[in-house]
Design a protein around this nucleic acid. Structure first.
Lengths: 192, 192
DNA sequence: AGAGTAACCAAGCAAGCGCTAGTGTAAACG
DNA sequence: CGTTTACACTAGCGCTTGCTTGGTTACTCT
């Protein structure tokens, strides 16, 4: 049992697990399916992960960490104009949503299968990410770019963005950046 | 085996099943748990439903049918003004989402567990519901109330509304109608 | 060369799963 | 009255589940 290990092998296994969790759902994915996808036998799996729960936690942690990194980078790299930052944040959200699609789909739809301990830890990560959003929304509200309740607006925007994983086809004519811009335009009266 | 039966007993069992499916997820909910919740033994369950899949289909059908009924009633009862209709549709959506919350959470998050046959049938119901939305959005676009791509706008709005089941607390200070109005206001430049 | 370790395998256990078969019983119906 | 129907029960079959155990290989480090 390689408890708190971030070996490259484990990273790869986590990636494969994410894919299977999306295809089948966490509960329907058996350790035997996971092992086969990884080219090993089911028993060997438990050398890398303490139990099945830990695999789920690893998948979700990966995705959320990446989201944080990408969002922070995007905000660092752009000007201080609220509109630019809002657009950058929306773009960053969709970027991570579709480059780490599997991990995020798992994070969004299998969250409840986490045990309380893992859930608590990952909630903090998620909160840190949402805090970035609320800050950007606050600036946009203060600048008069958008209107409404800060809490509601951020929930609505995040909901609209997260829901894209249910219908958006990356091979279609529209790019993720395109999508992000349309969403921002939709809630900004000035750009009619 | 009471195949195509809409007995009141079956209705009640479907309601209880929806609750359990939300609490535990479809896969984790065993027929024994369902039976216990219903006050019978696990074997007796299969007198009312052909198999576990059929329970899931019944739950989802219930919710979607109700959504259709409520939305149609809401549209029938209001004037032809596009803004009024848009607001009515948003209100109707949240109304059904929180009066039949369990059924809708199951419909939204356990959809993939349906077998192909049931999925095909229920997809038609879902499409009929979405068609109502697209029509309302189209009218609002034509009237210049909102702007953007008809397809994207309806997806974004539905996403924002559906996502409310993840964070909205019905016991909080805001009513569902309140929420719906805020969402409509957010995307309507004129009501700033 | 010898020790340590990471990665794997074969085999299988105990528990739990969806579902079936056969039966009992009370009310409804001809 | 006898028969049917609706609904529940007991018992358990056949299978799959997550996970453990005990051992083997291959590589690294001293």
């Amino acid at each position: 049992m390689n408890v708190m290990n971030a070996s490259p092998r484990r990273k790869e296994l986590t990636r494969l697990a994410a894919q299977l969790f999306v295809q089948e759902g966490f509960d329907r994915t058996t350790v035997r399916m996971l092992a086969q996808e990884m080219g090993i036998k089911s028993g060997s799996l438990f050398h890398h992960f303490k139990d099945k729960q830990e695999i789920l936690a690893a998948v979700i942690e990966e995705g959320t960490q990446n989201a944080l990194v990408i969002a922070r980078k995007a905000l660092d790299e752009c000007a201080e104009d609220p509109e630019v930052r809002l657009r950058a944040m929306a773009r960053a959200h969709l970027e991570t949503l579709f480059t780490d699609r599997n991990a995020h789909v798992v994070a969004l739809f299998e969250w409840r299968r986490l045990d309380p301990a893992a859930s608590a830890h990952l909630s903090h990560l998620r909160d840190a990410y949402e805090a970035l959003w609320v800050a950007v929304i606050d600036d946009a509200l203060e600048a008069g770019l958008i209107h409404g309740d800060r809490f509601l607006v951020s929930r609505f925007v995040l909901g609209a963005l997260n829901w894209t994983v249910r219908w958006y086809d990356p091979n279609g004519p529209r790019s993720p950046d395109d999508l992000a811009d349309e969403l921002v335009a939709m809630i900004m009266p000035t750009s009619a």
